[in-house]
């Protein structure tokens, strides 16, 4: 499987390390090359330094060939643009995106994109624990 990960922060790098360890074919894009230091010694994939909202960068990273694209930059609007390029314009079979601000989920309603919103997940869990423990 060819997996493209965009944004090499904690989430992106951790996922890249895990997938690479499982011998998946992983490419990570980040606009800041120092973020690649988060990748472990076991990471055997490639890294691309560049702004993934520039279509040239995505083409360099072979977006058209990707089986999955995971979008985890720290900007929701950037994520929305990249996710739609991948899913709508390049028909990548599986597009996953991390959504920081729960308000920003609305844009994905009609799209074939899998969204994960850590804040909502966390809040739900917290709420559960609090209400149950009372």
């Amino acid at each position: 499987m060819y997996i493209l990960i965009i944004g090499c922060g904690k989430t992106g790098s951790y996922l890249a390390n895990l997938l690479s360890k499982e011998e998946e074919n992983v490419v990570v894009i980040d606009k800041d090359a120092t973020s690649f230091e988060e990748l472990s010694a076991e990471f055997t994939g490639f890294t691309v330094e560049g702004d993934a909202t520039e279509i040239e960068v995505l083409k360099d990273a072979k977006l058209a060939k990707a089986d999955s694209v995971v979008v985890t930059t720290d900007d929701d609007n950037v994520n929305a643009m990249i996710a739609q390029i991948a899913s709508e314009l390049y028909q990548v079979p599986k597009v996953l995106v991390r959504v920081l601000d729960p308000q920003k989920e609305v844009i994905y309603k009609e799209l074939d994109v899998i969204t994960m919103t850590p804040t909502s997940l966390l809040v739900d869990k917290f709420k559960d624990k609090i209400v149950r423990s009372v």
Partner: peptide, 30 residues
Amino acid sequence: NDPDNLYICQLAQREFEIPKTFSVINNPDN
């Protein structure tokens, strides 16, 4: 910021059904 502009137009279209959306793009490839 192009991603911001795209998001603004799409939100306006999809959530508020604003009939006309105009956007500046900074990167000509967009």
